[in-house]
Design a protein around this nucleic acid. Structure first.
Lengths: 116, 116
DNA sequence: AGATGTACTACGACAGACGTTGCAATGCCA
DNA sequence: TGGCATTGCAACGTCTGTCGTAGTACATCT
């Protein structure tokens, strides 16, 4: 069973969270459920990772927190800076993907190309 | 100018190095040149990152080092364990890509889908 | 009453990346 | 011949995001 290494996702947890918040405010537990269902259970964010991402992003001005009126939850809303950051991350991802894929062998093809 | 964040590549530096070593033994400086040219300068691995990757991978048994007969370089050769590790990383990458891409908006399309 | 789910916080450890520095040999150009 | 760039590597310490562990508290279900 192959698992996603957190080292890759590292730095993209924020992006995932912001993606969800672009559809409206949400809170920790709901976001973690969203991520799990969107990835069909392939990726489940750790609670500590999630909440530390909130504090980091709030400090950076990418999200704002507010208390729910009827419940004890802490909601988060994406800011303009957060949207901008998200879009930059999307562009960065395209570049990263392009770079990494040059080093990925797809099913045994062309092992001996010896490019340089 | 968008730059690749090291947080994404984190954990894939080893994979890149192993990819190159699959074509035969090499040494630090040559590998860094290869990575740079293969990515058309889009990614340049830091020296410290490279050499610390060598020691880590040697400790893990993914590479073996030996001294060049004619020069003062330290060469590295990929081991069977290294090849196996590399192939696992390739599979992991496919999965990671699939997961991350669910959270990437490609050029303003479908911002309001609200999937859940 | 106890288990499970919801919702969040605090603390500390770990590992990979990276900045900085240092050093030594070589090549080259002026 | 002097100086500078390039090659090639090692040691040190710092930073940051992730994650393990633990704890709190309330709600609901059995």
């Amino acid at each position: 069973m192959i698992e996603i290494s957190s080292d890759v996702i590292r730095g993209y947890n924020d992006t995932m969270i912001l993606y969800i918040l672009r559809n409206g405010p949400s809170y920790g537990y709901e976001i973690s459920k969203s991520i799990k269902s969107m990835t069909e259970g392939k990726y489940v964010i750790k609670e500590t990772t999630l909440y530390s991402a909130f504090t980091r992003m709030e400090k950076n001005g990418y999200v704002e927190s507010f208390s729910g009126a009827e419940d004890r939850r802490t909601y988060y809303r994406i800011t303009e800076a957060g949207k901008k950051f998200y879009e930059e991350k999307c562009e960065e991802w395209e570049l990263t993907k392009e770079v990494v894929e040059k080093f990925i062998a797809k099913n045994e093809e062309s092992v001996l190309l010896n490019e340089e």
